[in-house]
Design a protein around this nucleic acid. Structure first.
Length: 512
RNA sequence: GGCGGCUUGGCCAAGUGGUAAGGCGACGGCCUGCAAAGCCGUUAUUCUCCGGUUCAAAUCCGGAAGCCGCCUCCA
């Protein structure tokens, strides 16, 4: 039973062996905070959230760093367009990002560093690169990294610098020694945010912040570096160049990249006008529906966001909660306390040294019933949440079967036999554990359905008292064996997209 | 032009050499006054196509077709 991870660097699935026993250092590229986050950001964040949770659940002490790029051309442009200060822009979108990710039940990383708060680290990093002749300062204030000084350039993306130069589509800065050299520090124009540096007032290039901040919190070499597939080149390639050129040791052991979200089978792009923002998706769907959707396909593959898929996921989540609701009503006690401890004691980390770990209590308790074992196997196989979902539904089906098999005794208000109850409790507890890893099933089932109903009432402008009175009338009609009237009422409610369920405890209704 | 990926039932989707998970949907059955929910069963002799390796391939190799991504500071 060992964890395997697909490593972009080697193109293979490899057994995970941490650099330091029991500890995992993980850095994920966060957003550039210049605009509202879209569903693609949500995918990346949710995927790495689940990876973080899985490491934690597997007993590792994880230091999870996710940065905010808060100084950048796009932020400056936005500031100029809106007449606001760049700080105002970045803070506004950081706040939005946090709100949305909190809604999606995403755990906060151990540390969320901002580029602007690590300017000195960045300057020190660049200075050392220059000292070591890996970078050079040119007339005008720019500092470039010299790719020819780093032998391994291209090893992550499998690119050959000469080929890329031949196919380059952008004008080359004539100050560069090599057209592929990239910016480490750029001089400030009038009115732009700037910091004093040995090369004059300016600001950092994009790639350097991740090298400097990961080095600050995770050390010269660490275990996991993640981000979207698009970051493989040039961003992550450049990070490797900067970091390894300086340290001489391997920067990152396992590179993990997630696939994109398409919208109705098209790439999300500004020109197509189909940017799908998280806040809009949250208006339409329950957060757990969104998570379940994002995790329903393997993280490396593209996933298509469309109404049909979302409707399917709604049915799936209802099915899970439907079972839990039945189980609870049959007297099974659902665990309210989390099985895994994802809380962190951030104060006990050693921020002074190179490395900061969470100081979290080990929450390693991946044991459970046979269903959780199947789930664990799937997650250990390159975080295969899609495969893990089969285990979730197996629990639901098995549990429902036990309830069906005992329906007679339950109807006669007898309780379940202890052996049956025990089986159900194991199933429910396995299900709960899977839910905690995936970040779903966090609500009380009755509460889930109640709030769902309330939303339907609000959205459709239906008077619940009116529905209840019709239901009551139908119950009377049924007692009187007036089935014609009963069916008439059912048809009337059907028009309102309301479906009735006659159960042992009376009739309930819900929206289709 | 360079690099990489994908193609599995009506739809979504696992599968990484040993004889096709799971979800949605559909159909049949049980249950129900009738339904709904749930359960049981059926729904791919076959994994884009053509070759090859192997006792054995959706899985490995070669080729073809289609689709897609990166090479533009887009996750």
């Amino acid at each position: 039973m060992s964890l395997k991870i697909y490593n972009t660097l080697t193109g293979k699935k490899e057994e995970f062996v941490p650099l330091k026993p029991g500890k995992v250092g993980m850095y994920v590229c966060g957003p550039t905070v210049y605009d509202t986050s879209h569903i693609g950001h949500a995918r990346s964040v949710v995927i790495f959230d689940v990876i973080f949770r899985w490491f934690r659940a597997s007993g590792y002490d994880v230091c999870y760093v996710r940065n905010f790029t808060d100084v950048d051309d796009k932020i400056i442009n936005k500031a100029n367009e809106t007449g606001h200060d760049p700080i105002y822009i970045s803070e506004k979108y950081i706040k939005e990002f946090h709100n949305e990710m909190d809604s999606l039940n995403v755990l906060r990383p151990t540390i969320e560093p901002k580029a602007t708060e690590h300017i000195q680290d960045i300057i020190n990093f660049i200075s050392k690169l220059i000292e070591n002749k890996k970078a050079y300062h040119v007339e005008g204030g720019d500092v470039f990294f010299s790719i020819s000084s780093f032998e391994g350039y291209g090893k992550l993306s499998g690119r050959n610098p000469d080929d890329m130069i031949a196919g380059a589509r952008i004008a080359v800065d004539e100050n560069k020694k090599n057209p592929m050299d990239f910016t480490l520090w750029k001089p400030a124009k009038e009115g732009e945010p700037a910091w004093e540096s040995p090369w004059g007032p300016g600001r950092p290039g994009w790639h350097i912040e991740c090298s400097a901040m990961s080095n600050r919190y995770l050390g010269e070499g660490f275990d996991i570096h993640g981000g979207g597939k698009d970051l493989i080149f040039p961003h992550h390639e450049n990070e490797i160049a900067q970091s390894e050129a300086l340290s001489g040791c391997q920067f990152v052991k396992y590179w993990v990249h997630n696939g994109f979200v398409d919208i109705n089978n098209e790439k999300m792009s500004k020109s197509l006008g189909n940017f799908t923002m998280i806040k809009d998706v949250l208006k339409r769907y329950h957060p757990e529906v969104i998570r379940l959707f994002l995790l329903s396909k393997h993280y490396r593959s593209p996933i298509d966001y469309n109404e049909n898929s979302m409707d399917e996921v709604i049915s799936s989540l209802d099915k899970i909660y439907g079972f839990l609701d039945r189980a609870q009503k049959a007297g099974v006690e659902l665990l309210l306390e989390p099985c895994f401890d994802f809380s962190e004691d951030k104060s006990s980390g050693t921020k002074d040294g190179n490395t900061l770990y969470s100081g979290a209590k080990s929450s390693g308790n991946v044991s459970g019933g046979e269903d959780f074992a199947i789930f664990r196997e799937a997650m250990d196989d390159d975080f295969n949440s899609a495969r893990g979902m089969a285990a979730v539904f197996d629990c639901v089906r098995k549990g429902n079967k036990i309830l069906d098999d005992n329906s007679e005794s339950l109807q006669n208000s007898e309780t379940l036999s202890s052996s049956q109850k025990e089986k159900l409790e194991t199933i429910c507890s396995d299900l709960k554990k899977m839910g905690e890893i995936l970040g779903i099933i966090s609500h009380d089932p009755a509460e889930y359905f109640r709030s769902k109903k309330e939303e339907g009432i609000a959205m459709k402008g239906i008077d619940p008292a009116f529905v209840d009175s019709l239901v009551a009338e139908r119950t009377e009609a049924r007692k009187a064996k007036n089935f014609a009237r009963a069916d008439e009422i059912r048809a009337q409610l059907d028009e309102m997209k309301i479906v009735l369920e006659d159960g042992p405890g009376g009739t309930t209704w819900k929206f289709v």
